[in-house]
Write a protein that binds this DNA or RNA. Structure first.
Lengths: 124, 124
DNA sequence: CTTGACCTTGACGTCGGCGTCAACGTTTAC
DNA sequence: GTAAACGTTGACGCCGACGTCAAGGTCAAG
């Protein structure tokens, strides 16, 4: 299939598909006219990439998952490196949450000081 | 005082001070040689800006606080508009936290599926 | 007088994941 | 045959808060 069809079937722009290829996450045979030719499996690769991006992974983070799928595994997450990325990511998210909670408290404290009568939904 | 001294006293780069001025948050008299001349109060203005930036405010967000200080209030947060920004910001942080918690759960679930034996610190 | 520490404006680079346009070749439908 | 709908590469724009040159003017100390 060509890039337009892959784009339509995955709901991803052709620009993004070329971008992924440029970064080594996707690869395509080339037809005699220079057009990219994709295989069925590429639909799954793209789906995996988008799924990971949507939960905050960077493109780099998705690489082990893509490699994992390419190497024959049915799930992109079932390789050691993917699992490591999962774990790093969770720790990273936890850290971000900690930062946000601290900020939240700090801002709420400043608000309380500037405006003693004010309160915020969620505070007790 | 000139820009170098203000930079040193506030711990902010001269580049940042000029950037704040460019965006209307700081203003300076000009000496006969074209050099910026700052007043003592500007130290407080800069401190307020940095304090807010450090808890995740954008430069735009700091404007009401700066205006508030300039209009004579002793605290940048004691004006109506500042309070509104505080409240918007808290709601915004809460939303980000919600998003992160959802992502965290989603990633942890995928990890658990790909790697049934794996667990993450913080999960019970 | 000269060095060098200060100041000025202007403008490009950073980071990521693309959107969007340009300028062109190919295929498909009528 | 021709026009629309595809494909190609290349390159700039975006967002925010600056860092970092470049190319110059100003001023105090020796």
């Amino acid at each position: 299939m060509r890039i337009g069809e892959l784009a339509e079937r995955t709901g991803v722009s052709t620009r993004s598909l070329r971008y992924y290829e440029q970064h080594g996450l996707l690869s395509a045979r080339r037809g005699p006219n220079g057009y990219r030719e994709y295989a069925e499996e590429d639909v799954k690769l793209v789906a995996e990439i988008r799924s990971l991006l949507s939960v905050g992974f960077t493109l780099e983070d998705t690489r082990p998952f893509v490699d994992c799928l390419r190497s024959g595994h049915s799930s992109g997450g079932s390789c050691r490196e993917s699992v490591e990325v999962y774990q790093r990511k969770i720790m990273q998210i936890d850290e971000e949450i900690r930062v946000l909670l601290a900020r939240r408290a700090e801002v709420a404290a400043q608000l309380a000081q500037s405006c003693p009568g004010c309160f915020v939904r969620g505070d007790k």
